[in-house]
Design a protein around this nucleic acid. Sequence first.
RNA 1: GCGAACGUGGCGGAACUGGCAGACGCGCAGGACUUAGGAUCCUGUGGGGUAACCCGUGUGGGUUCGAGUCCCACCGUUCGCACCA
Length: 800
Amino acid sequence: MSDTHTPVDQAYHPEIVEPKWQRRWAERGTNAPDLDAAARPFFNLMMFPYPSAEGLHVGNMFAFTGSDVYGRFKRLQGYDVFEPIGYDAFGIHSENFALKMGTHPARLIPRNIENFRTQLTRIGGMFDWRNELATTDPAYYRWTQWLFLQLFKAGKAYKKAAAVNWCPNDKTVLANEQVVAGRCERCDAVVEQRTLEQWFFRISDYAGRLLENLDDTSKMDWSDTTTTAQRNWIGRSEGAQVTFPVDAARAIEVYTTRPDTIFGATFMVLAPEHPLVEALATPAQREAVEAYRRATAARDLVSRKMVEKEKTGVFTGSFARNPATGRRIPIWVADYVLMGYGTGAIMAVPAHDERDREFAEKFQLPIVPVIDADGRLQSSERFDGMPAEEGKTAIIRWLESSGAGKGMVQYRLHDWCISRQRYWGPPIPIVYCDACGVVPVPESELPVLLPEMEDFRPDDTGISPLARNEAWYYTPCPSCGKRARRETDVSDTFLDSAWYYLRYTSTDFDDRPFDADRVRRWCPVATYIGGNEHAVLHLLYARFIAMVLQELGHVDFDEPFRVFRAHGLIVKDGAKMSKSRGNVVIPDEYIARWGADTFRTYLMFLGPFQEGGDFRDEGISGPRRFLDKVWALVGDATRNVIADLPRHVEVKWHETMKRAHEKIGELQFNTAISAYMELVNTLRDAGSADRRIVEDLVVMIAPFAPHFAEECWERLGHGGSVFDERWPEWDEALTVEESVEVAVQVAGKTRSRVVVRRDAGEEATVAAALLDDTTRRFIGDKTVRKVIYVPNRLVNLVVG
RNA sequence: GCGAACGUGGCGGAACUGGCAGACGCGCAGGACUUAGGAUCCUGUGGGGUAACCCGUGUGGGUUCGAGUCCCACCGUUCGCACCA
């Protein structure tokens, strides 16, 4: 061992200190809790990264460091903190990048992961490397496939036809994010929609629970911005389903949130894909209707959803009867009505709906206002005069009693399409057999390995590239043994990430996805930190999967993340970092130049963690100077205990322990660091490098500058790790000064200050204020009419 | 268009339940030590004014003894979602 005791007078050299402690942590297993027996388990999870070729940028470092600071803080409170790390390595990003570089993701990913591992080690995260995982590892995705099978067997996975974006030029399916303004991002061709059979998960069955749990504080304590985003995404609305009869045999079901306006429904509109369109098109209109349907299908999903677009549509020639008015109203077809929401048909109330009005004006359909300026119903027969809100309830009641409809809750959330017509993902473990139909791959045969294919690019069939690999594609039917075909779609990356936290606890088990005892000990996750860009998709899917797993008896909780906090974004020169802007900051050179601890401290200091901040090169010298000063104090303090500390030093010491404890607990890292800086300034000004204070300071700094703190701890003569220490205890009585400066206001303006004993009381404080010369000058010959007294803060003398 | 967050010195940002605005840091200015300083240390640093004081938290109103903080209207920035009936 070459680790010698660092001489006291030696300057701080992070390039020596940091590798030394990284090595020791690994050797001593400092960061590896006992997964089977930890007494106070604390699962500190951070969103795992996608291992890009560029490596971790400062945005990632910021997020990981914040999470790590929190984990180390919990550790100093005596928790057995489990802080695993892994890689979200499947997906279209890796695939496209590999295509661009003319390489293969299977070759690219290990290299990228290697680089990430180096970076993550260098930044000094408290990672438990025993449980590192990659979603691309067959030992991982075997269980992702297992998860699919559990959902399939429980009837929560099903197949149906759904539209995809299709680029007619590249002849390939595009993900939504590859469609920019209705065009293919690569070739700029106008994107169309195609219909394919795809796998879905029934997340919409859980809409109500996913919504209700958001308010259940016993299960979830999440950032408000995140729960709000989820609420909006789930999109609950209350209304009614109403039947509009067409003839003796047929009727159209609509969903409306405004049953109170039903008397103003002057026409109906069906989505072009609505199953009744063909039957309702009269011979005279048939050709026009068919042409319209074809035109709609030729347009892509994105441009169809453009709000600014001019309304289009066509009359079917048929009529329905408005059950409220009894009048015949025309049935139209238009693409502004979507098949994916409600029933795919609407009752159009042009007087009270902007879109219906636009449509009515264009096609000269009648507009009948049924709510007056005071918000009361009119032209609504016996409901006239009712306030709209009351009318809504009354009309729903009438609809129910007359059998024309019923009250109904709708959610915007639709089922989760997990099919991807791509290569780089876990194959969906299903086999199609001519004799047996849809057959799940037996769990004992998992994983269905993703075959190596040199040419993995999507082709013009619109079918996944895996279909071209015949040796893989054809397989004996697990049920009857005859030749059958594999499902060629792979699953969505979000399925990989919907359960990775469970796998973290159990990477050493190869016979089960996760161990029940381990999961019971460590889950749900105590604190989860990640970007708010995942507020809806990832976090909602993970919640859904937990609910299903609970229902199936695999876990005993339905909410996977007790606490979730969204971190902020790091910007550079006031703009979001992006390659196109050319303002991406690579952390490596900063770490090399300043040290990881300085870099970490700077990142945590530059702004509130949950809001982010502006990365500026000049700013980093401040935290480095701060650490240098602490280093010097440690040198001064090695043998120094001061018998009678000045009171203000003592107060600053205790106040810092308290304040930093509170602030780190709230993730207000920047203010904790400034509290340390104040303490250091106080110690230096007073020349009081008291050993006890400096030791406490070292412990408090440890979450931010872990290697630095370990080295200081050693220099102070301690063996072991500073992370086996406890957060120092403060004496509440010593966190405040004995005397306080009270502001004296005259007529609401601060004019002077007086020093009084703490808790001197109103009488004594006001008396002191009235004795003050400046105060008296401002009162002059006026009378004090009223006195406002705020203990230990201010006295306001209201004069008149 | 809808929803959310946010507007404080030259800059990043502090400010407990409404109670001394500008903590802490960067930068800048002056000084000390130095052959030297992009090292270190000391002092100063919201604007105006010789001063007493006055003005100051995006803009305009309001509530209050008192507003960065609460209410209303507007302006601006950022981020989500976008024909959801």
